[in-house]
Simulated scan of single mutants.
Amino acid sequence: MEIKSSTRYFAEMIGTFALVFFGCGAAVVSGVSASGPAGIGLLGIAFAFGLAVLVMCYAIGGISGCHINPAITLAMLTAGKIKAADALGYIIAQCVGAIVAAWVLWTIQKGLPGWQAGEWALGSNGWGEGYGAGYNTASAFIAEAVLTFLFLFVIFGATGKWGNGTTAGVAIGLTLTCIHLFCIPITGTSVNPARSLGPAIFAGGAALSQLWLFIVAPIVGGIAAALVWRAMDKS
């Protein structure tokens, strides 16, 4: 039975909401900045993002394919695996889900006595002086593009004719975990324009002015992966 477009878009919205809410929420509420010894640190944040993707792969993968990322949707469009109209619907739903998740997280954090948003609030992505290890723009762009390329390469491989669909969610989730373990000190790790958009809207300032990189670099990496996979698939 064919699944309605509206159902698939709604699944993408919920999936992206979960990714941003669990991932950014772990960074903000329980991460390295948490008071006391209970902070989960970089490793915990990386697993929060990876596990969020893993569980949503199994929750909505059968409905929408569980893109929950505009870079993935555009890569799938490039690979001919989704129609342009559906790709647009997916991307809008993903952005809405990310924005709503950031708003809910913002609302929760306002209930913490003495909480102030500060620069790059709500787990926003960024780079340069004052962010992470202070990497420059070129390093941030290269990291985001290359890591998105690798992420999509795993997705195409795990879900394609040579992969194992029953374990694809595990492979994809663990890949995102590896990506975060590497990239959190550089950019906070995006590889997903919607994930960056939601927190940046509420953080404003540097997070919003630097948002362009977290839109362009993941899209470049994702489309490159789609082109490479298409060439391999035809060989």
Rank of each mutant, 00 (worst) to 15 (best):
L176V: 10
L208W: 08
A206E: 12
T159C: 06
I172F: 08
S209Q: 13
T159D: 01
L208K: 07
G198Q: 07
C178T: 15
L213A: 08
L197A: 09
F153G: 08
G163L: 04
F182K: 07
I201K: 09
L181F: 13
A145F: 02
A145H: 06
T175A: 12
F202Q: 07
T148D: 05
I172S: 08
T148F: 03
C183R: 05
L197H: 11
T175V: 07
W212K: 06
F153E: 13
G188E: 02
A171I: 04
T159I: 09
I186N: 11
L174M: 15
N164P: 04
T177N: 13
L152T: 05
N164Q: 14
F153N: 09
C183K: 05
P185W: 04
T189A: 09
F151N: 00
S196M: 02
V146A: 13
A207T: 12
T167R: 09
I186M: 10
A158W: 00
F156E: 04
G173Q: 01
L213Y: 08
A194T: 07
L150D: 08
G163V: 14
V191D: 02
T166L: 12
S196L: 03
F156Q: 05
F202K: 04
G169S: 13
K161P: 03
C178V: 14
T187F: 05
G165T: 14
P199Y: 02
L208S: 12
G204Y: 01
A168L: 03
A200N: 08
L213S: 01
V146F: 09
N192H: 07
I172C: 11
C183N: 15
L211D: 02
I179T: 04
A207S: 12
T159F: 01
L150Q: 11
I155S: 08
T166K: 12
I186V: 14
A206V: 06
W162Q: 15
G160K: 01
A158D: 08
I155N: 04
I201V: 15
C178Q: 15
S196C: 07
T175M: 12
W162S: 15
G173P: 02
F202H: 06
S190M: 02
A158L: 04
T166H: 12
L176I: 11
L211C: 09
F182R: 06
A200L: 09
L152P: 00
T167K: 10
I201F: 13
S209F: 05
F202I: 14
L181R: 03
T159L: 02
G157D: 10
V170F: 14
L152A: 08
A194G: 05
P193K: 01
C178Y: 13
P193L: 02
T189W: 00
A207F: 01
V170L: 15
T148Q: 05
L176N: 07
G198N: 07
C183D: 15
G163A: 03
G165S: 10
T166I: 12
A194R: 00
G160W: 03
